[in-house]
Computed example of a mutant assay.
Amino acid sequence: MINPLWLRTLRCVHETGSFTRAAEQLDLTQAAVSQHIQRLEAQCGPLLLRKPRQLELTPRGQLVLEFARQQDEASERLRAQLTEDDPYCGAIRMATPGSIGLRLYPLLLEQQRLHRQLTIQHRFAPSQEIVQSVLDGRSDVGLVDYPPEHPSLHAEPFMREALCLVVPHEITSASWSQLQALGFIDHPDGRSMARRLLGRLYPGQRVDDLPLRGFTNQIGLILEPVALGLGFTVLPHFAVSAYAQQEAIRVLTGQPEVIDTLWLIYRSEWPLPARHQRLVAWLAEALVRPATQTRR
């Protein structure tokens, strides 16, 4: 590794054209300036042609000088990034479960369209994997369905999300026998969600006895067979609201509701940058507005 102080001395010697003036500008002795150049040349080869009243860079010297300039520019960029926390500029790495991720992703794209200096990386993952991703530094922020008990993580409520009983559009109400006739469209969390919601809406009925009509592990495709009238399913609200063919499905409402809390998590050891804070606040507002409304 080349000593950055030697590189700075070379730049100053070149810009002033003199070892003496460089020493004055750097607040060093002329002997120290000469020593810096000698050590740099010992590492890189001859850099300067010393002529009476003139110093000229060799081809190697020009290369090293350009490298010194690049190093200075990189240092300036780093200092700017460390001191300036622009809420509309920089990288954001976010991980979310599939349900809310379907609703968030178009919003994230809209933010990147409005703010071209913002770079957003979004990953779909289960909550346990998201927790580990934030701990490992692979994600800056995450949304999970439980508050992890880890001293290195900060967790705060982000949004409440209801479970929805989703049927084909032509069905306006459903008895237990009608649900049995329709059959269940399952997914990785389907049975668990169905037990929680249907167990309350239809107390005393055995959810596990519902006939299976289909299964998919692709969150964006779970409602396709429901829209075709092939069965019903239970999904979180945001997965339902993100589905494009709303006219082909219907959410049956009833009491009591089953509502989960989504938690925002990030590392507790350092403050969340302004760009993350702004985006999280904007997303929380956008999620409660109709999907057709946008806002800067």
Results as ranks from 00 to 15, higher is better:
S127R: 06
P203R: 03
A227V: 03
D208I: 03
V131C: 14
G204H: 07
P59K: 11
S241H: 05
A286S: 15
P211K: 04
L104I: 04
T294A: 08
Y88A: 10
P46R: 12
R8M: 04
A274E: 08
E224Q: 14
V144M: 06
D209V: 01
W263S: 05
C12F: 04
L279C: 10
L63I: 05
G183E: 03
C12H: 05
F215G: 00
F124Y: 15
R250Y: 00
I222K: 03
L109F: 07
A42P: 02
G137E: 08
Q132W: 00
V207N: 01
G254N: 07
A125H: 02
A227F: 03
P106H: 06
V144H: 00
L182H: 04
V234E: 01
L78D: 06
A155E: 06
G137V: 08
A80L: 11
Q178E: 13
H154W: 12
R138M: 09
G199F: 07
A91F: 06
E269L: 09
M193W: 13
Q180K: 09
Q255T: 12
L198D: 03
E149C: 11
I265R: 01
P236A: 09
H14G: 12
S133P: 02
L153F: 04
R93V: 06
I249S: 04
L5A: 15
R113N: 03
G45D: 03
E15T: 15
C12V: 10
E224F: 07
A274L: 14
Q121F: 10
S175R: 08
A244V: 14
E129I: 10
L272R: 10
L165C: 11
R275P: 09
Q81F: 05
R275K: 13
P211N: 05
R213H: 11
E24M: 13
V141T: 12
Q128F: 02
E247P: 00
L104F: 04
L57H: 09
V207L: 10
L287D: 02
L165K: 03
D85N: 13
L78H: 02
Y88T: 15
Q25W: 05
H36K: 06
V134L: 09
D189K: 10
V251N: 05
Q132N: 12
F215P: 01
S173M: 11
Q246P: 08
E156H: 07
G220I: 00
L40E: 05
Q111I: 01
P4I: 15
R50N: 12
M94N: 02
P59D: 09
F19R: 11
E285A: 14
S268Q: 12
Q205W: 06
L197P: 05
R39L: 12
R267A: 02
E84C: 13
R8G: 02
E66I: 00
R213C: 05
E56H: 15
D260H: 15
V240S: 06
P273V: 12
H237I: 01
V33P: 10
L201E: 01
Q245N: 11
P157C: 08
L283Q: 04
L82C: 08
I222V: 13
W176G: 01
R267H: 04
L82K: 08
R295Y: 13
Q111K: 00
T9A: 14
R160P: 06
A242M: 04
G61A: 07
I219V: 13
